[in-house]
Amino acid sequence: MDDGAAQAIASGGGTMKFPANKPLRLESGGSLPGLEVAYKTYGVLNAQKSNAILVCHALTGDQHAASPHPVTGKPGWWDRVIGPGLPLDPQRYFIICSNVIGGCMGSTGPGSLNPKTGEPYGLAFPVITIGDMVRAQAMLVEALGIETLFAVVGGSMGGMQVLQWAADYPEKLFSAICIAAAARHSAQNIAFHEVGRQAIMADPDWRSGEYEKHRVRPEKGLAVARMAAHITYLSEQALQRKFGRELQRDGLSWGFDADFQVESYLRHQGASFVDRFDANSYLYITRALDYFDLGAKHGGVLTEAFARARAVRFCILSFSSDWLYPTPESRDIVRALNAAGCRASFAEIESDKGHDAFFLDEPELDRILRGFLGANAQARGLA
Rank of each mutant, 00 (worst) to 15 (best):
N376V: 00
R267G: 04
A5R: 09
E329N: 03
A58G: 08
Y325S: 13
R92D: 05
E246D: 14
T129I: 08
L45G: 03
I349R: 05
T232S: 12
E304K: 15
T327V: 07
D356Y: 07
A379T: 11
T303N: 00
S11K: 15
D290H: 06
V100E: 00
L239K: 11
D332K: 14
G300D: 14
L289Y: 00
D352C: 02
V152M: 11
N189M: 13
G111D: 10
A52R: 02
D203R: 10
G209D: 02
I333C: 01
D250L: 01
H268C: 03
G131L: 03
P87E: 03
F358T: 04
Q261H: 01
A228I: 14
V134I: 12
S330V: 01
G106H: 11
L144H: 04
G131Q: 13
L247Q: 08
R308E: 14
A311Y: 01
G43T: 10
L26K: 13
A181Y: 05
E171K: 09
L35M: 05
P84Q: 14
G244Y: 06
G155S: 06
I130C: 08
A202R: 15
Q91I: 00
L283P: 02
E364S: 10
V312T: 12
G341W: 01
E348I: 10
Q261M: 13
G118A: 12
T129S: 15
S31Q: 15
S318W: 01
D168K: 08
A176S: 15
Y291T: 13
G29A: 14
A311Q: 15
T117G: 07
A167W: 03
A38W: 07
H57R: 02
R287P: 00
G102M: 02
S31P: 00
D205Q: 07
D356M: 05
E212A: 08
S330G: 14
A191M: 13
H185L: 15
S264H: 06
T60M: 13
M157H: 01
D203A: 04
A223I: 01
N51F: 08
M201V: 11
T117M: 09
K220G: 11
W165G: 10
H230I: 01
Y211T: 06
I146N: 04
V312H: 04
A66F: 05
A383S: 15
N46P: 08
S330T: 00
R367C: 05
G61M: 08
E304S: 15
M201F: 07
K40F: 05
V334K: 06
K220E: 11
V195Y: 09
D203V: 05
K116Y: 02
F314M: 10
E236Q: 13
L302Q: 13
G244R: 04
Y233F: 07
T148Q: 14
Q91M: 09
T15Y: 03
G196T: 02
C342F: 10
S264M: 06
V100L: 11
I9R: 13
C342E: 09
V81Q: 12
A225Y: 04
S107G: 08
N338L: 14
D168N: 04
P70G: 10
A199N: 02
A223Q: 02
A229G: 15
G13F: 07
A305N: 09
R184W: 14
V216F: 02
M201E: 14
Q7S: 14
A258T: 13
T327D: 13
Y93D: 07
I200L: 08
L360W: 11
D62C: 15
D293F: 14
A38T: 03
Q188D: 05
W206G: 01
P326D: 10
R380Y: 02
